[in-house]
Amino acid sequence: MIRVVVSDAPIDIAAEMTLAEGAGDTQGGAVATFTGLVRGDDGVTELTLEHYPGATERALEALAAEASARWPLAGVTIVHRVGPMHPGDRIVFVAACSAHRAAALDACAFLIDRLKTDAPFWKRERLGAETRWVDARSTDDAAAARWRG
């Protein structure tokens, strides 16, 4: 089961966990998850996520399909919030369900590393009256690259 959601609504962890845990019926012995939260770095008061509707969902579904081809997964969940958020808010939730922990943990790390470089999202920070676009990080490229080849 692949579940991809891009929405401006807050991420409901309890509901997503219930779905992720149910993906394997009784054969999914392990669920690994990652939750990303908005950081209040440098006095950031608001973070706005822009995305490319249509292309975003396609990129996330391709990523989920790639993970499912690499590991024996019963379920993959990718939920990404867009629009305005505040420090402490959940921005992304990723879950991988498999029979055993190694596949679940590896697939979860793969999904969040590659999501950072392969999906069309852009962050804009507000610091008081000022706004600035966040620059891409070379460390994100390096993290994504370790899953290639």
Binding site: L49, H51, H80, V92, K116, F121, W122
Partner: peptide, 10 residues
């Protein structure tokens, strides 16, 4: 065709 900066999601 879409033109945009390097992506910064997650």
């Amino acid at each position: 065709i879409a033109i945009f900066p390097p992506v910064t999601g997650g």
